[in-house]
């Protein structure tokens, strides 16, 4: 008989797969971005099922809250001509036949490799699953979060400086890229017209 958490997991995983399919198929980039947000929240709930409250918080606040705003901004600022995806199944297969083949080969092989290795007896030896463990008490979850923080600072001490440096570099680099001085002469004809439409009229 399937238990409550297992059912929950199945529901969420179908939700995630549905979100991914929608992300790939919706006609507008903006829509793809908000389907991505939904997928990210679904993944966050799976993290919660793996008993990691703090990673849940990171996933929601950084991914679903922070990165997705960036993606939405980028989608809005660069919106131009949307890619017309083939509507019919046949046309879809015709257009993406080679990609589909590659993707199927990779997927099947990955599944076989991972599942066979996970199911082998060597892997099972001495392990038991903590995924979806609902017997954890509140104290234990407090204890886990606290110990994760302690571990992060004590045993993985370079992680936070590394991330901080990386994010600072990314921030400065992207600001530098975006606010770079540019002149209309450097632009392509399309953009020249867009930024300076009066010129076209004069011509």
């Amino acid at each position: 008989m399937i238990s409550f958490v297992e059912a929950l997991f199945l529901v969420i995983s179908f939700f995630i797969v549905f979100c991914i399919i929608m992300t790939l198929l919706v006609p507008k980039t903006m829509q793809a971005a908000y389907w991505l947000i939904l997928m990210l929240t679904g993944v966050a709930v799976l993290f919660l099922l793996a008993n990691s409250e703090i990673i849940f918080a990171f996933q929601i606040s950084i991914y679903a809250g922070g990165i997705s705003v960036l993606l939405l901004f980028a989608a809005l600022l660069t919106q131009h001509e949307e890619y017309e995806f083939p509507r019919s199944i046949l046309g879809f297969i015709k257009v993406t036949a080679s990609q589909l083949a590659i993707f199927l080969i990779i997927g099947i092989n990955l599944l076989i490799l991972i599942l066979t290795s996970v199911m082998s007896s060597d892997f099972r030896k001495g392990t038991s699953s903590q995924l979806g463990d609902t017997t954890l008490t509140v104290e234990e979850s407090f204890f886990m979060t606290e110990n994760f923080s302690v571990t992060l600072w004590r045993d993985f001490g370079m992680v936070i400086p590394f991330l901080a440096f990386l994010l600072l570099t990314a921030l400065l680099g992207s600001v530098k890229l975006v606010i770079r001085e540019w002149e209309i002469e450097d632009l392509s004809d399309v953009m020249k017209n867009r930024y300076n439409p009066t010129q076209e009229v004069q011509q």
């Binding site: 990171f58 993606l71 992680v159």
Partner: peptide
């Protein structure tokens, strides 16, 4: 996971900047 989330944030920021720059120069991405 913590590291990957941080890297993804950096990647998204840089990606946004590059796409804006590309968009500015080519009119499309």
């Amino acid at each position: 996971v913590f590291i990957i989330i941080g890297v993804a944030a950096a990647e998204a920021a840089i990606g946004l900047a590059i796409f804006l720059s590309v968009y500015r120069n080519f009119g499309e991405i």
